[in-house]
Design a protein around this nucleic acid. Structure first.
Lengths: 210, 210
DNA sequence: CAAAAAATGTACTGAACAGTAAATAAATAT
DNA sequence: ATATTTATTTACTGTTCAGTACATTTTTTG
């Protein structure tokens, strides 16, 4: 298979030993899908190794045990798919359009086509584990407070630019917008259709921006 | 043990056979606690039977299998603990106080003292199972749409009584209030303190009532 | 061309788990 | 009294699962 040369990116020297036959990022993407669809407990190692296209010892060597893999998958999701909403938010110059884009892009993810998992890996799979795998609870809190801070900063900028009134409670509304995201994920998980949730976005935007 | 007489409540005639040595409602309450704390998959039958104070065959005879027990526990929670918020809502004549009470009483439940489970059995344990145990998804939807309808009716009454403006979008705001409940549960589950969440209640009430 | 290092493939292990069989106990019905 | 019905007790069954031992393959180092 692998006719590649092992390159250690940090200093350019070649790595000893047999090279990996799989792409770590692609494997993580596959793990995300499995955990997202089945949750932590129901995702068996057979499910994971099959989806990731690697065998068990490779998984353990690369990622540690199942809990560590879940943590890696969660972080990968937070930086990848899970951040698409906030990126869309950043790209909209108008604050109303930005909040709308945040919810709309997130909704696309929460109600994907096909038989893939609905909802959100963080809200629906990781959060329920909070009391059980302590690392997971801390990670969820960290991801969310980071998002909230980011939203708060943007609201403060808009106040400076007079797009929002001077007494706009930025931090509170950032929490509220984050709550809207979780609520949307909850509805998507429990079967609400994309069109039904899309119709609710103006109401949610209004709740955030007054 | 049981020196009781078997009474069939429906017609007063005595029931054949050995009487049950346990109280079905108390057993369900115990099952609720176990599922709430551990989730469906991590709650083992040893956990359940120990907490419920019955042995395995009695559990299977009384409730069916583990899935059926979860469904029963979920329904029991929905009618019992899970409805305390809506009851508090109904008892407050002022609409602002009612919405506040709805969130406050729910928060007590979501952040109980001791080492018991935080959050909500519906939001944090049942909803994640939606795609996996179809019955559960349908039950969650049913419980929530019932709550939303109830809230909507009250809002409409308040409009008739002029406590809310004529153009108040009752149905939308009922959904929004239900969303606030889920968001609070999510925060509680992931470690937010009761006092921190209590401080956010006025903001959430404001989002619902304008 | 060895020797060392690192990854892969196969097959296994011990534990935990959901569900059940069979015997026993406690009540009512005739 | 005896039979019938229903619940409890104990012990078991077959399966699934996370994690690992061991041999093999592929690479770099000397």
């Amino acid at each position: 298979m692998g006719k590649d040369v092992n390159i250690n990116v940090s200093n350019g020297t070649k790595k000893r030993g047999r090279p990996r036959a799989f792409d770590g990022e692609a494997a993580l993407n596959a793990a995300v899908e499995v955990f997202w669809a089945k949750g932590f407990e129901r995702a068996s190692l057979d499910d994971l190794t099959q989806a990731m296209g690697i065998n068990r010892p490779s998984l353990y060597a690369a990622f540690g045990d199942k809990k560590a893999l879940f943590v890696r998958a969660l972080g990968h999701y937070g930086l990848g798919l899970g951040s698409k909403g906030i990126k869309a938010f950043d790209e909209e110059p108008d604050i109303n359009a930005a909040v709308t884009a945040f919810l709309t892009v997130s909704l696309q993810l929460q109600t994907r086509d096909g038989d893939c998992a609905k909802g959100c890996l963080i809200s629906n799979c990781a959060a329920p584990l909070s009391g059980i795998l302590p690392t997971v609870g801390d990670m969820v809190s960290a991801i969310e407070s980071s998002t909230t801070q980011h939203l708060t900063q943007r609201f403060e900028q808009e106040k400076a630019g007079c797009a929002l009134s001077k007494d706009f409670p930025s931090a509170e509304r950032a929490v509220l917008l984050s709550d809207m995201l979780h609520a949307q994920a909850h509805r998507a998980r429990t079967g609400a259709s994309r069109s039904a949730l899309k119709a609710q976005i103006p109401m949610r935007v209004d709740a955030v921006l007054r």
